[in-house]
Amino acid sequence: MLTIGCHLSSSKGYTAMGRQALEIGANTFQFFTRNPRGGRAKDIDEKDVTQFLELAGTNGIDVILAHAPYTLNACSADEKIREFAVQTMEDDLKRMEFTPGNFYNFHPGSHVGQGVETGIDYISGMLNQLLKPEQTTVVLLETMAGKGSEVGSRFQELKAILDQVERQEKMGVCLDTCHVYDAGYDIVNDLDGVLEEFDRVIGLDKLKAIHMNDSKNPFSSHKDRHEKIGEGSIGIEAMARIINHPKLSGLPFFLETPNEIDGYAREIKVLKELYQEA
């Protein structure tokens, strides 16, 4: 079975997101933990959480993915921005335990001229400060496109972060198709080779989720602009190969394409039709 969903608004709570996902043919979803530009998160409604867990259990929603705000930059040159990152992720991880056993994804950040090694040290340091042995949430580093001073556009950079994290069992990677293509990993013409390199550098056991996005820009552009499925430079045939690749079998796929809810419904339908049951 293909586990596929899209990014939904969390403004009305978990149960509303779960119902909306089911209405458009999804069996998972992604959401921001708070405003993507930062700020205080809404209080958790425990009644809503209980209703959602019942809905999920009845309808086969086995995993969901929370996304940290874009303003979270653990490797900023500004100490106050790094402190905000720590405070935000600490709060988010506590909130995640209301829906245990799920994923929390974040952009590693931008080193802003300090250098990649310094950025890696800051990111891993934050994770070592925050990850707890009792947490059930797995934290995912997202692969990045490499614009500006982003950390995480190369598999080796993600590996370097992971190697410095003490609680390895609490960590994983989310591979974004637009980002890796823009970063110079040719998932269109050499998907096997890209996955082999990922396995060699990081290990496929650490790959926990896929952001399924086409790209508005050409290969290795380092631009990071998502496009609707089949309408960008990656294309529908490559998307079909990705969702059907045996090494990606069983992973959840999350659409972050420039769509409203009806557009997501169409894309989910298309990808389900392209999916071949093993």
Rank of each mutant, 00 (worst) to 15 (best):
G38F: 07
A85L: 04
R82V: 03
D186S: 02
E79I: 14
T15Q: 13
A56D: 08
E256P: 08
G172T: 07
H107Y: 00
L55G: 08
L65E: 02
G250R: 01
G172C: 11
H111W: 03
A209L: 04
L207C: 10
A68C: 06
S149I: 01
V270I: 15
E157D: 11
Q20P: 05
Y122I: 01
L8C: 14
T257H: 03
G230F: 06
T3R: 15
K272S: 08
I161W: 06
Q168S: 12
G39N: 13
R82W: 03
K206T: 11
A21P: 01
D45G: 06
A145P: 02
S249M: 12
D262C: 00
H226V: 04
K247T: 04
V194T: 11
V112E: 13
P218V: 09
E237F: 07
N102L: 04
I61W: 01
V139F: 05
D45F: 00
Q87R: 14
D190C: 01
F103Q: 03
F31D: 12
F106D: 02
L207W: 06
A41E: 13
I123Q: 03
N213G: 08
G146F: 10
D199W: 00
Y14T: 10
N244E: 00
A68V: 01
T99F: 13
L195Q: 05
V188D: 08
R37A: 14
Q114W: 00
R225H: 11
H211K: 10
E231R: 14
R40C: 04
C75Q: 13
T136W: 10
A41I: 09
G250Y: 02
Y181H: 10
V180W: 02
N213D: 09
H111R: 02
I210N: 03
K47G: 08
I236M: 11
V86R: 04
K42D: 04
A145N: 02
G119T: 05
S9K: 14
L2A: 13
I64K: 02
D43F: 10
N35Q: 12
G263E: 07
N27Y: 12
A85V: 05
E273Y: 07
L140A: 01
I243C: 02
I236P: 05
L141W: 10
D190P: 05
E79L: 09
L131D: 05
Q114H: 00
R82A: 12
I64H: 07
D262N: 09
E142T: 02
E277A: 15
E166R: 00
N35H: 14
L251D: 00
N244F: 04
K206R: 14
V49I: 15
K272Q: 15
T136D: 10
K132M: 12
L204S: 04
H7G: 08
I229V: 15
S215T: 07
M1N: 15
S110M: 03
K272I: 09
I4L: 14
G263M: 06
Q87T: 07
S153I: 01
K206N: 13
E117A: 12
P36E: 11
K147R: 14
E273F: 12
A56F: 09
A26Y: 03
S220N: 15
H67F: 03
A265E: 10
H7V: 15
I234C: 09
E256Q: 01
